[in-house]
Design a protein around this nucleic acid. Structure first.
Length: 154
DNA sequence: GCCAACGTTGGC
DNA sequence: GCCAACGTTGGC
């Protein structure tokens, strides 16, 4: 099984939205590396951190589970969607997604700034300069450390 | 709002 | 296949 970190802008889609309506489609990823993770690497039962990006306190806010295989993202065919991709062939869809289910919301955000203070997390993808992927792998060690941090209540 | 980083596009 | 231009991400 694998661990992941998946970003969302909470103003657009928050972990409370997921908790209120779960499982849900993790739609709108339009990056080939992410597409390949969804299609090839993820497995049903994998766990993922829910990461808040582009907000007051960027960081990890909870946990969700991957609960479906990859299948075509319907928004790529919807002209009214922000994620519409007119170049995606219907017979060979360019973009796929996974269904995710809410698992846990942390009592506080484990902020990016806090993650940077942990020596054992120095190699985390999300901490690398210039990284912009919205879905990225997390190692089992990193997963364990962050879960322990989430249990240290502020 | 700025801007560094980097993925994507498209002309050649 | 190269690479310049462009667009997007996302922290700050």
């Amino acid at each position: 099984m694998n661990y992941w970190l998946m970003k969302s802008e909470p103003d657009c889609y928050s972990i409370d939205d997921l908790a209120a309506n779960s499982p849900a489609m993790w739609e709108g990823c339009r990056n080939y590396t992410v597409r390949n993770y969804f299609r090839d690497t993820m497995q049903v039962g994998d766990l993922a951190f829910f990461y808040n990006s582009n907000c007051d306190i960027p960081g990890i806010i909870g946990v969700m589970e991957i609960v479906s295989e990859a299948y075509p993202d319907p928004t790529q065919f919807d002209p009214s969607s922000n994620y519409f991709d007119e170049k995606s062939p219907k017979e060979n869809p360019r973009w796929v997604l996974r269904d995710v289910s809410f698992r846990e919301k942390f009592l506080r955000t484990i902020s990016l700034a806090e993650l940077r203070t942990v020596p054992h997390l120095a190699d985390m993808h999300v901490l690398r300069k210039g990284q912009r992927l919205s879905v990225m792998p997390v190692t089992p060690d990193e997963w364990e450390i962050i879960n322990q941090m989430s249990g240290i209540r502020a």
